[in-house]
């Protein structure tokens, strides 16, 4: 027989009161911060994009790759010197969602688990945070690709 735990009335009452009294996140100010900081990161990205396109005269596909590479480099460097976590504490989703946040989520476990060795520490933990994003991001893109093929009839 399955050992199931049925919540008592006392438990439910306590949880309700905890939720009522709990200090709440300041959603509005956090949204504004995320909007401003995320916007600034995107503007920096646009500057890099324009620099590659207008000054370096890269082709359209190279411009996109160049911009991503530079932003990942900046995110990784700021993580390495211990600044990105401070930006993240203020910016929230504003610094998590852009590609710099992706760099942060890979470099931070790499730094931390280096002490457990390069293979079972750094290597194994590198994608501990970004891994699920990659798994489901790539899975979703495959599904979208198949649907597109079926709808448009182009294989």
């Amino acid at each position: 027989m399955k050992n199931e735990r049925i919540p008592s009335a006392k438990e439910k009452d306590y949880q309700r009161r905890v939720n009522e009294r709990m200090p709440k996140s300041k959603t509005l100010s956090q949204c504004i911060r995320a909007f401003v900081s995320g916007g600034i990161i995107c503007c920096i990205g646009q500057l890099i994009h324009d620099f590659a396109k207008l000054t370096l005269n890269y082709s359209e596909s190279n411009v996109a790759a160049f911009t991503a590479i530079v932003l990942v480099f900046i995110g990784a460097t700021l993580t390495g010197v211990g600044i990105y976590d401070k930006i993240g504490a203020w910016a929230g989703a504003g610094s998590v969602v852009p590609i710099t946040g992706f760099a942060n989520s890979i470099v931070s476990p790499a730094m931390e688990f280096k002490r457990e060795g390069y293979v079972l520490g750094l290597g194994a933990k590198l994608f501990s945070i970004a891994g699920p994003v990659l798994v489901y991001g790539i899975s979703a893109s495959v599904i979208v690709g198949i649907i597109t093929c079926l709808i448009t009839g182009r294989f």
């Binding site: 709990m22 200090p23 993580t79 976590d85 942060n104 688990f113």
Partner: peptide
Amino acid sequence: ERQYRLPLEMGSQAVPT
């Protein structure tokens, strides 16, 4: 932090509780 939560250099916000 590293055993129970996230790496230290990971940029995330503290929950109010």
